[in-house]
């Protein structure tokens, strides 16, 4: 897909537990720039679509120190103990997304 000369891809997101409750949806579809990483989806696309809870979203997912978001040496943010699963497999924030990917964002588990 191309929009203003920029290649776009479509990905699907799934939310569980407190994240589903926070956003008020179970699943969504995002059209994002080709080459975008998991971190871009979590830091930019999702909070920008849910502006009313964007601050809580970022505070819930990412580690902070003295009010500043922590970053790895490569600039990616640092997740709290949340898991990101892309197409059924564990993913890193720096991983690039591809057309048709399904991204599940998971809070710490609470079964039993």
């Amino acid at each position: 897909m191309s929009e203003n000369g920029i290649c776009k891809i479509t990905v699907k997101t799934r939310y569980f537990g407190k994240l589903r409750e926070l956003l008020g949806v179970k699943n969504e579809t995002y059209v994002i720039e080709k080459g975008a990483a998991v971190a871009d989806l979590l830091q930019i696309y999702i909070p920008n679509k849910h502006l009313n809870v964007s601050k809580i979203w970022r505070e819930t997912l990412f580690r902070t120190l003295k009010g500043e978001y922590l970053q790895e040496k490569n600039g990616t943010p640092v997740l709290k103990n949340y898991l990101v699963i892309v197409n059924g497999k564990s993913a890193q924030l720096k991983d690039c997304l591809r057309e048709g990917d399904e991204i599940a964002i998971m809070p710490p588990f609470g079964g039993g």
């Binding site: 537990g17 409750e21 998971m106 710490p108 588990f109 609470g110 079964g111 039993g112």
Partner: peptide, 27 residues
């Protein structure tokens, strides 16, 4: 098996009490 289910299996639980609701995290 019981211990590992609590920590490794993607299941989430909300405890609803008479006062409030709490997401329980097995951490």
């Amino acid at each position: 098996i019981v211990e590992r289910i609590k920590f490794e299996v993607p299941i989430w639980k909300k405890e609803i009490t008479e006062k409030d609701g709490y997401w329980v995290e097995n951490v």
